[in-house]
Every structure is written in structure tokens, then in C-alpha cells.
Amino acid sequence: MLSRSAERLYWLARYLERTENIARLVNVHMNLLMDLPKGVEMGWRQLILINASQEEFAQKYTIANERNITRFLLADNTYSGSLISSLSAARENIRTTRELLPDEAWEQVNEMYLFAKKNLDTVSNRRQRVLFLNEILRSCQRFTGLLSGYMSHNHPYRFIRLGRSIERADMTSRILDLASLLLSESRSEEVRQYEAILWMNILKALNALLMYRQQMHSRINGDDVLNFLLQDEDLPSSVGCCISVLLDCINKLPNNDDLPQTLIELQAYVKAIDTRQTTQKQLRGILDNLQNKLGDFHNKVADNWFLSV
């Protein structure tokens, strides 16, 4: 397999995962805001915080309201972290690797892109936005299903899984980071009252609510959710599970050098997190660190397999 193709498939998967994540995040956030009473200090700005793009947003918009923030996150093709930018980048990557994927894979992504481009203007309207996001989510799921059902689980497939899992682990840790921020001590009682609703929406944002209920058999509480999303071994969006997938792929790839060792250490790091013993502030430090370690791992993957230009 060409190094160039490995790199493009990896990014294809990352960008598609990002597209799906943004769509789900905005969707869930809309629902969350509908549940919370007026006046609670939580708004659309949190979405900008998750993506660490406060500065870029401030350069383009003066008011952080729903209209501006959804446009920025979904439809702004000059912001590289937006849904449409991620989707365009995914399309460029698959356009140059379509010979490695099942026939329909390219059509799937191309159709999704054409749909998004055509309907970008509708996202400022709430009802239309729901329809838009649902279609994007469905298309992403179709793509994932198509590959898992019809593509040989070969090296190209492994690079797709690598990209998807890194992006996913990164997003899960970002969302948990935000939750910790919201619940840190300085927050008012009013938010705390709605803590369960917040955690429920965190689970929804990662499509993990149902799985949580089946697994934990308990009412929703912060510690359990954190544990579940960090360490559960069966939930595909948990950080621990993402790392297991990474390890599984890496072990089967040629020339993997010291990468398995790096991942085993990362796995131990995540396992050692004890949410009951840490303050919110410590937890934020741990999650930050986790994101850095994932960044380092990405660099090693790139050094090892991608075309060095």
C-alpha cells in the first residue's frame, strides 16, 4: 500500500469522524438548551470552547448567538474546523483514494457533500437544521457501515480505523473536558440542579446513552459517566476502547516500531485515572494531557508511514 494512500485514507476517516461529531454536537446542544430553563448560564458559546476556536470566532463575529455560532460551526468554509470544511477535506481525500475503496464509498461521500453544499443556507433555521444534521449523521453512518460490511479488513481499512479512532478519542476527551469545566466548583447551584440532564446529553453527544443504561444499571451521575466514557472496554466511543482499536490496527501494520509500546503506555495511563479521587481541576489536567499524548501518537504514525515531503 502506498504511503500516500495511507495518509489520505487516515485523513479521510478523521475528517468524516469530525463531520459526524460536529453534527451530533450541535444537534445534542440544541436539545440540551431546550431542556434547560431560561437564564441558566449555558449557551452556544460552549460549542466554540470544545473546539478551542474562541479566537477565530471572535475575529469573524461580534455576537456569540445561536445564529452566528451554528453558521460558524456548520457552514463557514473559511473556518477549517467547520462541518463543511471537514466534509470538503474528506471528499478531496477520497477523490484521490477511490481506487482502494468499494465503488459506493466515493458516491456516498460525494452525495453527502453535494447535499451539504446545497442546503448550507438552511442551517440558520432551527427546524431545517435538525433535518440537515440528521441527514449528515445518517450519511456518515451509511459510510461506516458500507466499509465495515464490504471492504476487506486490510491495511487500507486499518488506516481508516486509525484515523477514526484517534479523532474519536480526541473528541470524547474534549467533551469530557467541557463537562468538567461546566461542573467545576465555581458554578452556581442552578446549573448543579440540572447536572443529570447535562450528563445525559454528554452521553447523547457520543451516542452512548442507551449503552450506558444497559451497562451501568444506575441513575446517571457524573463519576459513572466519566468512568464509562474514559475506560469502558466495549463502548466504541470510550477513550479506552479507541486506544484498543488503535493497538489492534498498529499490531497488524508493518514496520510498527515502538508504536505498540507507546499505546500500551497510553492504555495504562487511561486505566489509572480514578475519577472518584480527582478534583475537577485535576481531571481537566489529565484530559489535557491525554489530548497531548494523542497528538504525539499521531505524529509518530505520520513519521512511520506517511509520505515525507
Binding site: 500500500m1 502506498l2 504511503s3 500516500r4 481506487e99 491495511h155 508493518p254 514496520n255 515531503v309
Partner: peptide
């Protein structure tokens, strides 16, 4: 077949053409 661009390929001293892959 592999779809390659010029810089995916290299000709070595043995006058054979190679592509740069994840295996080398």
C-alpha cells in the same frame, strides 16, 4: 492497480522502479 504520482515512485541503482509504501 495502484494509482501513483511521480513522487510515489523511485528508480534505484538496480534500474528497477519502486513505489514508496507503508512497508518500504
Amino acid at each position: 492497480a495502484q494509482l501513483v504520482e511521480g513522487n510515489d515512485l523511485v528508480v534505484n541503482d538496480d534500474n528497477c522502479v519502486y513505489m514508496r509504501t507503508i512497508k518500504g
